[in-house]
Amino acid sequence: MVDLYNFLYSWQLFPEKGTYEFGRRPKSGNYKMQWRTESNSLSIAINWVTLEDQAFTSEYSVPGDGLFHTLEDNPLANKIKLSIINSLTFEVIFAQDELESLRIRHEIMPSSLLKITQSNLLDPEKILTNTEIYHKQFSVLPYASSASGAVVKQNEEGLIRHKALTAMEEQTNMQLEQIRKQIELLALQAKEIVTRKELSMLIYESKLNFAPVIGQSYYLYETKENSHILSMIAPNEWGRKPMPYKSFVSMVKLLADHTWVEIKHQGDYSSSLTATGQ
Rank of each mutant, 00 (worst) to 15 (best):
Y204W: 12
K153M: 15
E198C: 01
A256T: 11
L199Y: 05
R36P: 01
E21K: 04
I85Y: 03
E72P: 00
L186P: 02
L176D: 07
R240P: 00
K264N: 04
T195M: 09
I84N: 09
M232P: 14
G239Y: 03
G267F: 12
F56K: 09
S28T: 12
A164P: 00
K163W: 05
K17P: 04
M251I: 00
K264H: 10
W260M: 01
Y269K: 03
V194K: 11
S119Y: 06
G18I: 03
V140I: 15
L82M: 06
S270L: 10
S43C: 12
D53F: 09
I116M: 07
I127H: 11
M232L: 15
L176C: 07
T70L: 12
S206A: 09
T70Y: 05
N130M: 09
K136W: 04
N209W: 10
N74Y: 03
L255C: 02
F210Q: 09
I160Y: 02
K163V: 04
F7G: 02
T89H: 10
K207C: 08
L113V: 15
D65V: 04
A164Y: 05
A256G: 07
I233M: 08
S111L: 11
A55G: 13
S139N: 15
E222Y: 09
N155A: 07
R180F: 11
W35Q: 05
R36G: 10
M201L: 11
Y143E: 12
Q12C: 11
K197A: 03
Y204D: 02
G239M: 06
N6Y: 08
L220K: 11
L76V: 11
K181C: 04
S28G: 08
P75A: 06
L159D: 02
K136L: 08
S43T: 02
N78L: 08
K27L: 09
N86L: 07
N209E: 11
I193N: 07
I263N: 05
Y5K: 13
P15C: 06
G267A: 15
N236T: 08
W48V: 04
L71A: 04
D268E: 14
I44L: 08
H228Y: 15
E59T: 12
R103S: 13
P26E: 09
E91F: 07
I179P: 05
G64F: 09
S111D: 14
V62T: 04
Y5F: 07
L220V: 05
P212A: 04
N78D: 01
N47H: 15
L82R: 05
S111Q: 13
R105C: 10
A147N: 14
G158N: 06
T223P: 00
K17E: 14
P63N: 01
L76E: 14
